[in-house]
Computed example of a mutant assay.
Amino acid sequence: MAEQARTNIPEVRVATVKPGGAIMKVSLPATTTAFEAANIFARTSGYIEKRHVDIGDRVKKGDLLAEITAPELDQQIAQAQATLAQDQAALQQAQASRELAEVTNSRDSNLVKQGWLTAQQGDNDRLTLRAQQGAVGVAQSNITAQEAQIRVLQQEKSYQRVVAPFDGVVTQRNVDNGSLVSAGSTFMFTLMHSDVIRTQVFVPQDEAFGVGPGVDADIRVPEIPGRTFAGKVTRIATALQPGSRTLLTEIDVPNPDGLLSPGIYCTVELSIPRRTASTTIPSDALVFDQSGLHVAVVRNGTVHFQQVSISRDFGTTVEVRDGVQPGDQVVLNPAVNLAEGCKVTVRKTETG
C-alpha cells in the first residue's frame, strides 16, 4: 500500500526563482537630433550680393555665409551723419548764445542795482540766460538721439554680413545670388552642429524610475550593423508626459567621424539602476485562469499557488514584482489538476 501511495504522488519539474540584477537593461526606439540647430533669417533687407556656402558645407563659428547689399541703407547712414553734424553746429551756436547771455546778465545786473537800468531790463537779461541754457540742453539731447540712431543704422549694416553662429554643417539653403531678402522674414539657411548627436528617447513610467544623468546608454542604428555608439544620459525632463506616461530622456553621443546624422531612427539600450527588488522566473511557470495570474510554488513537497504581477516579459522568462522570493521553486508547465496543497515530488531542478 505504501508503494501505491508513493506512486500516486505526482512528479513535477521545477525551476529556481532568480533575483533580478542590480542593472535593468531596457531597449527603446529613439530619434537623433543635432546638438545645436539654427534657422538663420535675414536681419536686414536687400539683395544677396554673394552666397559663400551651400548645402553640406562645414563652417566654423564666425565664417561668412552670405553678403547682403542695401545701397539705401548707406544713404540713410550718410543722411544721419549729416544731421548729426547739423546738431553739433546747433550746439555750438547755442553755447555761444548762452555765453553772451551770461555776460550780458552779469553786466546789466550791476547797472540795475545802481539804478542805471530798469528792473524790466534786468528780468529780460535773466530770463534770456535761462532760455539759452535750455537751448544748450536741447541741442545736447538732439546729438545724443542722433548718435543712437546712427548706431542703430550701423548695427543694421553689420547684418549685411551673415555669419555662422557656431561650428556646424549647412543642411538647408533657400537663397542664391541676387535673391531679395526682407528683414526678419526671409529664411536663408539651416545650420546644425553634429559633432555631438543628441538622442531623444521616451522611457515608459515603469522603467523611468532610476533614469537620470550619468546612466550608460548604447545606441545602435539598423543601417550601421556591428557598430555600437556609447553615450550617457545627460538630461531628463523630470516630469512625465501626461498623455503617454513617458519620460523624455536625452543622451549626448560623440560623433567625431560623422557616421550619425540628425533625424535617423535608432534603438537605445539603457542600463538603468534598479530601484525596486524583482525576481525572474520561466514563462512556462505561469498559470492564468479565473483566479488571475499565478505560479505553483513547491515548499516542503507541497504546492502553494501564489499570485504574481509581471513587470517585464523577455519571452522565455518574465520579471515579476511580487508573489515569489529568490530561491523559491516554481512548477514548470503545471498540470490542470494540480491544486493548492497537493503533495508532489521534484523530479528535476532547472535554472530559471
Rank of each mutant, 00 (worst) to 15 (best):
Q86Y: 06
Q88S: 08
A90W: 00
L91S: 11
Q92Y: 02
Q95P: 02
Q95Y: 04
A96P: 00
E99Q: 08
L100M: 00
A101D: 10
A101W: 11
E102Y: 02
E102C: 02
V103T: 06
T104M: 01
S106P: 01
D108K: 08
S109Q: 12
S109D: 05
V112E: 10
K113A: 12
Q114W: 00
L117C: 00
T118W: 00
A119N: 07
A119Q: 11
A119M: 12
A119R: 14
G122W: 04
D125Q: 05
L127G: 00
L129I: 09
R130H: 05
R130P: 01
Q132N: 14
Q132F: 09
Q132V: 02
Q133Y: 09
Q133R: 12
Q133P: 01
A135I: 06
G137T: 10
G137K: 15
G137R: 13
Q140P: 03
S141L: 15
I143W: 13
A145Y: 01
A145F: 08
E147I: 11
A148H: 05
Q154P: 01
V163A: 01
V163I: 06
A164T: 03
P165I: 06
F166N: 08
V169L: 13
V169Q: 12
V170F: 04
Q172R: 11
R173K: 09
R173C: 14
N174V: 07
D176Y: 09
D176Q: 12
N177P: 08
N177E: 15
G178W: 11
G178V: 08
G178I: 03
S179E: 06
V181P: 07
A183T: 07
T186H: 11
T186S: 15
F189M: 03
T190Q: 08
T190H: 06
T190K: 10
L191T: 02
M192Y: 02
H193I: 00
S194H: 05
D195W: 03
I197V: 13
F202S: 15
V203K: 07
V203T: 02
P204V: 14
Q205E: 14
Q205L: 07
A208H: 10
A208N: 09
A208Q: 09
F209I: 10
G212D: 08
P213T: 12
G214K: 01
V215E: 01
A217R: 08
D218P: 02
I219A: 08
V221S: 12
E223A: 15
E223W: 07
E223D: 15
G226W: 14
